[in-house]
Design a protein around this nucleic acid. Sequence first.
DNA 1: TTGTATGCGTTATCAA
DNA 2: TTGATAACGCATACAA
Lengths: 337, 337
Amino acid sequence: MTTVTLAQVAGIAGVSTATVSMVLRNRGRISQATRERVLKALDESGYVYNQTAANLRNRSSNQVGLLLHDITNPFYGEMTAGLSHEMERHEMLLFLANSEESEERQQKFVDSLMRNNACGMVLCAARETPQAFFDGLKRRNIPAIMVVRPLNDPDFDFVGTDNFLGTQMATAHLLRLGHQHIAFIGGSLSSGTRSQRIGGYTSKLLENGISPNPDWIVTSQASQSDGARVAEMLFSQFPQITAAVCYQDIVALGVMQALRKMGREVGRDFALVGFDDITEAALVQPALTTVSVAAKEIGRKAGELLFSRIQGNDEPPKRIILPPALVIRESCGFRRG
Amino acid sequence: MTTVTLAQVAGIAGVSTATVSMVLRNRGRISQATRERVLKALDESGYVYNQTAANLRNRSSNQVGLLLHDITNPFYGEMTAGLSHEMERHEMLLFLANSEESEERQQKFVDSLMRNNACGMVLCAARETPQAFFDGLKRRNIPAIMVVRPLNDPDFDFVGTDNFLGTQMATAHLLRLGHQHIAFIGGSLSSGTRSQRIGGYTSKLLENGISPNPDWIVTSQASQSDGARVAEMLFSQFPQITAAVCYQDIVALGVMQALRKMGREVGRDFALVGFDDITEAALVQPALTTVSVAAKEIGRKAGELLFSRIQGNDEPPKRIILPPALVIRESCGFRRG
DNA sequence: TTGTATGCGTTATCAA
DNA sequence: TTGATAACGCATACAA
């Protein structure tokens, strides 16, 4: 399979490379006759456009990067689908990398993007990413959109959800149903997202004259099993708790498991709200009431914004905060006495 | 941010571009003195290697593509993580695209990969992909590994799981527990994966002197609700059925629902086995016995194989079939009378 | 409307 | 051990 070049096509069509190039990109004025001749030669030769050469010549590219910390998390799967769809619309290619929360892998990916002349990126940075990483990014002067994980640095565009409002809605829902003893379960101490979610939870409690009990706010890893473990400890120590707002759906699923094991029935003896609205939330029994954050939409919006930046949009950094929605299913049951 | 080139670095170091290039890639013999001088210049200048130019010059690239039909499916998320990890080990970049089962999007992605001079790809093709697509791929003569969805074309490498063995194991398990009336529920008629799974089921029945009953093999969409619908019809017509092998866990969950509604208790009156080992399988009550497929491992193996092909390995096409594992939980109960 | 010639940033071949 | 220089395949001034 020898590679066919513009020059060879030009040879076949009996024109110059400039002409072929112009036909290819619909630029300049080409007579109908030669255009057809070129098109024919293009077709016959089995020519494949060499984007690499064009990129080098143009000092540009049509490749963007997406850095995630955990692609196996269904939430990010959804988000990726949204971004991917948006990028395809603009004929751009998407590089994917999974940092697995490693700062080193993350840095390697970004360096690789730079070497490959990517024209932009969407990042959900690893948890303990040092500021130096972001400073480096700014120096590079390449469009970069941060997603999902809240970031202090005001110099970056950001697309995410309103975590604070989300848990406010969840907590309000539980309060409306008559619950007074509401726990908050999940997330890790160093998570900014978690801070915001706890903020929504505590503020709504206080609004209703309930002072939050620090013992009822517990951390957990992002897994079902750890959610179960943590919940079991919590509920055996504080049996008076009748409801919980969970940091994530995955954790909520674990909490469900623990409650069942302890002989308590979710939806009757206990009310549970999750966060994320992953697919499983609708599938478990009882179906999980949760806060939906439109992961796909985050991806789409990030893609849209990134594309506009690549096109040269130099407005000041934006923060796009998508409103969450409470999806009421069965895990909170009905109003209590 | 003006881009620094090799030539500029060479200028600073007072050497030629050839020398800088050699230092950069540790090729040729360079004296310690000049090497250090070049390294220093490289560092001071903030030089960024231009992979695009190198690729053009070398007629090569370090970019591979991954085509999926549904990245939001957690199974493919896992697989992607496995592949991504493997690619990173080899300093390769991974392009991702989501066909959403559209043949057109799929073709566009592959074309785009060709234009961008990708050096290989991993594909899980859309369901109704015409043979022409695969033929086109072969003509391109670019390493392509097929994954997960079984393919008839023997010219491609394939990595997937042993669907046949999986349902054999599931069926054998039910037979061991004393069941004689075993149904097969789920999957769509056009699915090759389903054919294999049905093969495992029927062959194991026959091995045990039971002739499969076509009426007990029913299709279903990949949703809980359709699984429930289909199961209800089946069981009300054939109440003698005491066990079922399901095409997918999602379907099995629906079957559970139907059984419950009909007053039959899974794990006591009925034995159920799923396929996939999705997260919910461990969660439902009773927990679902299922066939587990190592998605991450499929990704890893596909990456390994792809890399070897890129390196020039031209052995005949391989079929890597990873063994599934039966995960025994509670949905089959214990041995029957 | 079309052709000529040059450069994008590397690498590799040859000389020196 | 190092330097000059010609590709790699395309795009675009500029000339014709």
